[in-house]
Structures are given as C-alpha cells and as structure tokens.
Design a protein around this nucleic acid. Sequence first.
RNA 1: GGCCCUAUCGUCUAACGGUUAGGACGGAUCCUUCUCAAGGAUUAAAUCGGGGUUCGAUUCCCCGUAGGGCUACCA
Length: 453
Amino acid sequence: MISNSSIKVRIAPSPTGFLHIGTGQSALYNWLFAKKMGGKFYLRIEDTDRERSTKEYEESILGALRWLGLDWEGEVIRQSERTQLYRTALEKLLSEGKAFYCHHSQEELEAERQRQEFEKVPPRHECNHKDLPLGKEGGGIIRLNVGNSIQVISFEDQIKGHIEFKAGLLGDFSIARTVSDPLYNFAAVVDDAEMEISHVIRGEDHISNTPKQILVYEALGLPIPLFAHLPLILAPDRTKLSKRHGAMAVVDYKKDYLPQAIVNFLGGLGYTFSKDLLSREEMIAEFDLSKVHKSGAIFDTKKLNWINCQYIKRLSPEEFRTVSGIQEISDSAVPLVTERLEKLSDAQEFAYLWQEPVYEKELLNWKTSSPEEVKNSLTQTLAVIEELENITDEALRSDLDKLSTATGNKGLVFWPLRVALSGKDKSPDPVQLAVVLGKKETLKRVHKAIEMF
RNA sequence: GGCCCUAUCGUCUAACGGUUAGGACGGAUCCUUCUCAAGGAUUAAAUCGGGGUUCGAUUCCCCGUAGGGCUACCA
C-alpha cells in the first residue's frame, strides 16, 4: 500500500450517547478510505457541549470502535482540551470584524423565526447592531458576519457531486457562546484545519452545515478540505434511524453479533462490494469513495442475521467459546450449535449439550404411538447403545436403522431418543447428539427417560 | 413554510445510451427427512409519472410526484 501522508480523515462523534450505528458506518468508510489511500484515520471527541457529554459515553464509543476493529491513529483528540485554539481563532475574527457579538435575546430570536415561517421566507437571523462594542456581560453569542451576501457557496461533494447554496440565506449564524465556548460549526472547522483533515467524510445530515463551515474556513483564511456526504441509514419506515426503532447503538449488537458481520453489513449498506462476505482487507482493496451510494438504505435485520449466520458457522470451537462465553461446550458439539445459530445469545438454547436437560414426560411420545411403545423403543435403544464399545455415528446410525426397520417406524426410534438427549422437540440429529455426549452420558439420559414411565 | 439531497423487485443493489433488466437477503414450491438447521433444485417479484434529446432512454435534460435531511446559544 502506498503511503500518502496528505490524506487525513477523522470520525468525530460526540459523547452524548452511545456510538450510533450510522456513526459506526461513517467511521468504517473513513477508515476504509484512509487504509485504501495509505492515509491516516483520526478519532476526535466533540465534547463542546459540556452539559450532555460524559466520560462514560466516551469510553463506550472507544470500546465500540475497537470492537469493530476500526483502529485510529495516535491519541484521541478532545475538543474540551483545545479551548485555546478556538479562542485564538475567535478573537481574530472578532478583531477583524468578521464576527460580532449579537445582542438579541432568545425571545426576540424565537419571535423572528416564527414570523419568518409565517411569512414563508427563509429562516435566518441578520443582526442590525454589529458595531456595538462587545460587552462580555451584556453581549450575547458570537455570530459570523454573513449579512445579505449574494455569494454562492458551492463544493464538489465526492459522493453526491456538485452542491451549491446561497450564502445570503444563511444569515449571521452563531459560531460560539463565548470566546472560550465554541459551537459545533466553528469548532469542527478549526479542528479539521488544525488537524489538516483532507477529506471530511460524514453523514448527509451535515450537508446543510457545509456552507456555514466553508464560510468559516474563508473567514479564517484556511484551506477548505474535500467533502463527502454519506447517505443515511434508514429505519424500515424510511425515516432516520432513532431510538424508537429499537437498537441503534453499536454496543447493542455486541451480545448477538460478530463484529465482522456488523462491518460487512454496514459496509454493504452503502457500497457494492464484489460479494456479501469479505474480510476487512478485501473491503479495503475494493473501496472507492466515489462509488459510495447516493441514496439511503434501510437497515435490514434479516440480511444482517444472515451475514451473522455465515460467520458464526465459520467459527472454530475455540473462537466460539470466546465469543459466546460458553466454556463448557466440547469441540465436537460446537458445529452442532453454530450451524443453527442466528444470534450468539441463542446458544443457551443448546444448553443440553453441556448440562442435563429438564423436560416434560409427554414430550417423549411420538405421534400416535402409545407410551408402552415409546418406553419399549427406548429400552431397545438402550440395549443397542450398551452393546457398542463406544458411540460412533456410523455404528449407532446403522443399529438404529435396523431397529427402525424392525418396527417399521423410524420416528418411534429417533424421536424419543432425541427428547431423552436434548429435552427439546427441535434439535440436531439424535445420533449426532449421542456421539457428542459420549456413551456414558447418553446411557444416563436414556435411563432417565425410561424411568419416567 | 424555506434550503438541500434522493428515486430499479418487499429489502440491499447490478446493468460503455442497445440485456430475455442480472445478483444477494427475504418469500413460495419441491427434494432430503425422526424434529430443527443446513444443503440442492425451481419460482414469483422492479426501472415513480409526464415531457423532451436520440434510430434507440433504467441510463442524459426539464417539470411534476414521493420520500428523506437540515432549518438551536446540540453535534
């Protein structure tokens, strides 16, 4: 891979909640792009909102990113630790008259907004007292001096193509509460510039923030990065994925899904790879930012489950024990479980593989066969197993088939045995169960079943 | 309301301006079968509408329509 030090991207989550699945996808694409281009991928925590940001959420976000296998470059960058940077930039704009203190009250602003909506004109705030000397006590927030500009702001989105906005529609938008308390659109620009971010790859809900940020870059005299806006992941009702749609945090998926499944699913939701299942390396090799889709995709749990199934099936016994936390399961029992598992936590349904099952006697009955016939069948099966030196699939199967042929009722032989071994009406083939359980345990369970009559 | 983005099977999508519009997930049917799962075979299912441009439009342009996003002293 060619190293390209000029390519720098970042993911900038705000620690006001767990890592959202959409942010996870955004992180993935940034990461893929950086790896593909030989660039660098950074993590910046946007914690300028002191009220809502917490250390716990930050920890959780870092953990989720690590779980997904999206490693970042160097130290985590926190906006709360870079106040001086913003202050310097803010004071510069203020002294140059490019920014000013707004003295309107929140009530006035609210009334203005409502009036504009009523008059069907663009909602914007243009101040009429920009020359007022600040007054740190009397002054309100700091706004960028945009005014009634006729400038057209345009940029070539790396995914969506040409996009343009009229600057005048933006108004004098807010950039900071105070010189040491910047707002998102300002802090993000200062940081991206300072970090020399070359490509800002983020969700398309940020498209409308882009013209504001471009104006800030221009006011500061800073080079403007390239932008790429990712389509949003949608809920089944085609609206933005949110809390009411259930699980939306990456950590919510940890107990049931393999990270590789999540990565493949998220990747495939906005990009067409050559196949459904591929390693991170293969994804990197195929990735091309300009080929990311333009329209949003619905989060389809069915597809995710299928991908998860495929990866679970490929798990080695050791890996399975690690991800499921089930240490008691034997090597030979693992394939029996992994072949029919959709979600990791469902593995508990196969607990009979490592502990004696508890079940109702009625479950042993096979269709119309009488209890006597069932008991008799189990007794014969018991005899067959006792004859075997140790249980092998081939030997036991052949013996049980003979038994079935004799009675002319295969179900009468296999069904009660399955229930005796698993305690369930659904399970892997009883012969396979017996092999996995071993002669001693199998005999014990069949005995127990017979004693129930 | 304003600004912006988007539009192919139910879902995710493929298709140098020329294809019987392809694949995957999901569904259905069948095979296998003691149950479940897996597997195999078969199958239904789509170009939002209207205008252009063109010999020819899913593809390019315009207008509608629909959906989505943003519209904070959140990010």
